[in-house]
Amino acid sequence: MSSATQSQSWDVHRLPSAEGRNFLVTGGNAGIGYFTAEQLAATGAVVVLGCRDRAKAETAMASIRSRVPGARVRHLRLDLADLSSLNSAADRLDLGQLDAVVHNAGVALDDPPRRETAGGHELMFGTNHLGHFALTRWLAPLLSAARAARVVTVGSFAARSERLDLGDLQSTRDYRPKRTYGRSKLAQMCFGFELDRRLRAAGSTVLSVVAHPGGALDSLTPSRPPVHRTTPGARLCALPSALLVQGKDAGAWPVVRAVLDPEVAGGELWGPRVFGLRGTPRREPVPSHMADPAVAAQLWAASAELTGTARWSGPA
């Protein structure tokens, strides 16, 4: 089936049933993660919101239930900046299998000072990449127990213009917030593609897919009070931007398709149709700097050492 045919047959407003399946969305209490969780909950699946703050998770779950009658949503306390907590977090899922994990949670810092996690890792790289890398390791048995599970990594348009510095992954020598953020998202995306190569080599039924939301603005996002509020004035001011970008509800569409569409294959990149910034989801060519196996292998080795998962070379 061609990409064009797939785009025509997939309806973002009429998602297939996923009843009986279990999905984990990291950072599912806000932004792209919230709308991903809301849309997946409408399929009948059990959706687990992985986030640190229980109160915010409860608010998000109440919002989802108010819009999706009968939604089956749960909270898992998950702190991706605390690598030592991730093994027990996977155990606390209390599921026999996991049909998909969406690696969505992320930290973006605008202020110049460099910050570190309690474990001594640069905060954005440590949370966005290392946390998800380690979480995948601990979720591997649950993913392998499902018939055809997926690891969906949420990347960013910002990663297109960045390149990894394998000698300074944690920006100790030259820290610039926007660049460090873009590189942390690039590391995530490289990991997603490398993970799929390892899955295929191992003959696994698990797929690893990368998706990105394009340009997603709060001001173009529908209100979900108290999770998110968009005033009429803010939306009116943002209308000219809607020619190029979209709201976070639409930004979740490529992610949701990567989770649900049976035509999606491992190692693919999905994003918005119009210039990769807005519109319905489509498969995109993978940029060469994201798919370089030599760079990815070095990143994997460094990540395994930094997360204390050196014995893990791939799922299960």
Score class of each variant (00 low, 15 high):
100 A>T: 10
95 L>M: 11
314 G>T: 05
26 T>G: 07
25 V>S: 08
53 D>L: 06
197 R>M: 13
277 L>K: 12
220 L>Q: 02
220 L>F: 03
222 P>N: 09
312 W>P: 02
173 R>T: 13
291 A>D: 15
107 V>R: 04
201 A>M: 10
143 L>T: 05
126 G>T: 10
129 H>N: 04
40 L>Y: 01
134 A>Q: 02
29 N>T: 15
305 E>V: 09
254 P>L: 07
30 A>F: 00
255 V>F: 12
215 G>H: 00
312 W>N: 00
240 P>D: 02
196 D>V: 05
25 V>M: 11
294 A>Q: 14
276 G>K: 10
252 A>T: 12
254 P>I: 03
191 F>I: 02
187 A>G: 05
84 S>K: 06
314 G>I: 04
55 A>Q: 13
75 H>F: 03
119 G>Y: 02
283 R>E: 14
265 A>K: 14
284 E>H: 15
243 L>N: 04
67 R>N: 11
4 A>Q: 14
32 I>F: 05
105 A>P: 06
273 R>K: 13
164 L>R: 09
239 L>T: 12
135 L>Y: 01
211 A>S: 10
249 D>Q: 14
17 S>D: 11
266 G>P: 06
209 V>L: 06
168 D>E: 12
169 L>N: 06
3 S>T: 14
53 D>F: 07
2 S>E: 13
184 S>L: 02
31 G>V: 05
19 E>I: 13
117 T>V: 11
191 F>T: 05
125 F>G: 01
175 Y>M: 11
305 E>R: 15
50 G>V: 07
243 L>R: 15
148 A>E: 15
151 V>F: 12
129 H>S: 04
32 I>A: 02
195 L>R: 03
116 E>Q: 14
267 G>V: 09
91 D>K: 15
131 G>P: 01
56 K>V: 07
106 G>Q: 08
184 S>E: 05
46 V>T: 14
45 A>M: 04
303 S>L: 08
15 L>N: 07
55 A>Y: 02
193 F>P: 11
177 P>I: 08
151 V>D: 08
178 K>P: 01
196 D>A: 09
43 T>R: 13
110 D>K: 11
79 D>S: 10
67 R>I: 11
296 A>E: 14
174 D>A: 15
200 R>E: 11
144 S>T: 15
168 D>W: 00
78 L>D: 07
210 V>W: 00
